Amino acid sequence: MTFWRNIARLAANRVDEAECPDCPAGLPGEDPAFSTAVTALGAKLAKADGRADQSEYAAFATVFQPDEGSERNVRRLYELARQTSLGFESYARRLAKRYRGCPQLLEDVLDGLFHIAGSDGAVTQDELEYLERVSDLFGLSRLTLRRLKATHLGAGRDDPYVILGVLPDASDEELRAEWKKQLSAAHPDRARARGLPEEFIAVAEAKAASINAAFDTAMAERRELGMMGAA
């Protein structure tokens, strides 16, 4: 039985298997609870900005690929779920509980939701808040969310990871090594040693300050996340 026929079966039988405490054996596509939760999250995301158009369903179908035999049932379930964005947190919690031992799978779902949100050419603040809330309920780290946001929306110029030229999920050692490398290259003393005019030295000083600030910000965020994880 395919991923999407499981959706139809669950919808027809009104079975709720999402309370299982362990990740089920087999592929997620064979799990009706997973299928239904993913469909509901995609549909309710489409309504998060107050409107739901056909481009978002097309993006949903592209990401999660219903087969021809199940398309009609999938569309019916999707249309029902997208009548309101209310209730999405319940689906996210159930999915997180059922697949808490499979964080990469939860990240893949969030990745797909980002794709759907951007399918109409823009991600609204309401949609972004929806995605951030789903990420929190999935138990994903802020660094994972930052990476997905940068992948789909682009990173801000003031993002410390953009300034340092490393991925948000780089290790502390990789982050520190890149910071030292960039700081060494940008150090004002190098500009002075090359005999550059004061204007260039001022630019080098500003760049070095930006690199230091980015490193301090990134490390402070990581310490905060570490304390939150230990709480």
Rank of each mutant, 00 (worst) to 15 (best):
K44P: 02
V134Q: 02
A25K: 15
R94Q: 08
R176A: 13
T39A: 14
R147A: 15
C23K: 03
A213R: 15
A43R: 02
K44D: 02
A193L: 11
A11M: 09
K207N: 09
A193I: 06
R157L: 14
A170D: 11
C23G: 01
S184A: 12
N73M: 07
G69E: 14
L164I: 08
C20I: 09
E199G: 08
P188E: 13
G118L: 04
R72H: 05
E71A: 11
T36M: 01
Y91L: 06
L131Y: 04
L164S: 07
G139Y: 07
P160D: 06
A8K: 07
K207P: 00
R75V: 11
A8V: 12
P103Y: 00
E127L: 10
E56D: 04
T62Y: 03
Q182W: 05
E129Y: 03
L167F: 05
L27M: 12
A186T: 11
D53Y: 09
V63D: 00
W179A: 04
Y78M: 06
M227H: 13
Q83M: 12
P160Y: 03
D136H: 09
K180E: 10
T144W: 08
L110I: 04
E221H: 02
T84H: 06
R147L: 08
I163K: 04
T2C: 14
L137N: 06
A193R: 15
R223Q: 14
A155I: 05
L225E: 15
A12E: 13
V74H: 08
G29W: 02
S55V: 06
A40F: 01
E205C: 11
L41W: 05
R157Q: 15
C23S: 09
I163R: 06
D108K: 11
G229I: 00
M228N: 12
K181M: 12
L143M: 09
